[in-house]
Design a protein around this nucleic acid. Sequence first.
DNA 1: TTGTACGCGTTATCAT
DNA 2: ATGATAACGCGTACAA
Lengths: 319, 319
Amino acid sequence: MVTIKDVAKEAGVSIATVSYVLNNNPRIKKETREKVLKAVKKLNYVASGIARSLKKAKTNIIIVFVSNFAGPIYQEILETIHVKLKERNYRMIVSNGDLAESFLLERQSDGAIVLDPNIPLDLLIKAENKNYPIVDTTKMINQNNIIDLHINSFDPAYEVIKLAIKENYQKIGFMHGNQKSLDNKLRYEGYLKALKEHNLEPFCLLNGNFTETSGYDAIKQYIIDGNELPEVLFCSNDEMAVGAMDYLKKRDIEIGKDIKVIGFDNIELSRYYRPSLTTIDINRSEWSASIADTIINMIEGKKVKPYITKSRIIRRDTF
Amino acid sequence: MVTIKDVAKEAGVSIATVSYVLNNNPRIKKETREKVLKAVKKLNYVASGIARSLKKAKTNIIIVFVSNFAGPIYQEILETIHVKLKERNYRMIVSNGDLAESFLLERQSDGAIVLDPNIPLDLLIKAENKNYPIVDTTKMINQNNIIDLHINSFDPAYEVIKLAIKENYQKIGFMHGNQKSLDNKLRYEGYLKALKEHNLEPFCLLNGNFTETSGYDAIKQYIIDGNELPEVLFCSNDEMAVGAMDYLKKRDIEIGKDIKVIGFDNIELSRYYRPSLTTIDINRSEWSASIADTIINMIEGKKVKPYITKSRIIRRDTF
DNA sequence: TTGTACGCGTTATCAT
DNA sequence: ATGATAACGCGTACAA
């Protein structure tokens, strides 16, 4: 490894001078400056980010935790956050939540964005106690150093079920995703509230885990057990809806007629699937941008603006 | 920030002792050990990863560069690599290629996996000259510290076109993805070779950039210009094939009959799309595992085994 | 068990 | 106005 010392020796100056040159400090006069730069180039020197981070107590890195890299949802979110952070001179890295412990507590980053619901609360609290800024989207906790920016799933879920009721459906089912997930919880609560307002009872409650196969399996079991189909099935995300529809089609149940299906998220597949899936779209790019802004503002001690996600119902063939 | 000094003071021992305790060095006797651990817990101390990395000149972090977080392909690759690395006690972080410069040269990671074709070659070379280990999948370069593990696209492309020719198709088109991409290049060359062996000329060459919309636009322009459709259209990836088919359907051209379509990658959508897309599947999980093993072996100075990806043709409705 | 040099930059302070 | 000296950040690990 070539270090700042090597450069100093090569250029015949002190290491301080090298550092000043590299940081564009005007106190170094042109000729020395050029001498140093020549040495830098000759030796192919690049300063160690680690040493710099140690000294400055700042990494300019923000870490994003995702639960898996496979969610179609994450894709655009990450892309947006990345661009935003870069604009403001931060570097984004993405990691799996099971590495959260080391990254959150060891100060290898200036802040974290939590998209992975599996990161334990006490870990976040520990980090928060160390003055480490976090934007969390999975838990609805607000603390000094933890800002909550979860998706507002409750309202659109409520709205879409209201709509179904208005169109005279009464037997309305709900398919759970991961029940520990906040998103699932809010969607379920929105569903319940709409039913309650019209004195309806949940007609059919299924359990999935947000994956396609879990949706397939859940409805399959329900049907095999001889239960009556709901008129409308509201699934906690699109992927499960797709899985469920796969099975319904296999049984020659006509979707959109024999049963209505509603998803959540508006993933790309929901548009392509046949029949195309009615779902709820969240303005994810705006949301992502807000996440990025918020974490930076926290880090830099600036004021953070609250934000609530916007959504709309996308009506397609299945409802 | 609470540092090792604070712990030492709290426990009434030297910082060396604290360090030894935290690293499970048996030289410290039980009582002191416990005293230290108590202080650690009381102060909520966690050692700074940065300081440790600086001293040990090792981060145990491997960085993966992707060109965008939106490719459906990346998902399972990252998942597999992550698991593999974790098994071997490395942490994976993912980043966008435009941050490559800082991460590659500043030694914030022990090694890199390059999936982003846009990272300039000279940057890789610079890093390699610094003895920084890289597994690259985008360029077919092999150097001391750069191991090439690109996907073998050539052979399956060749095979699938041979197959089409065997089934008596002669007017066979190719839709390019990003032409600078190695994957695209190899797929095109495989296509060309098969044609050549049968004295056929490329019938229709279209230009896309691996996105769905680019596939849509390319075929649209081709048709609007009044050109004759090929019997078979081989697209450099599934997403473009899907885009192209979207347009073909809009024009009421019957896919699988009026025109055959072949994709590459076997993304999930290729199975769901109607008509379902014939494509080429790469054993990506094996490939990913090999990538992970290779980078670690390089870092640890162990022998690296060569690996060539395996593939098979998945025949569905479109061909 | 402990003292301390060390890893590699940054920056306040001092010297010319 | 320029540049050098040296303290410092936080752990690690050798020598004592």
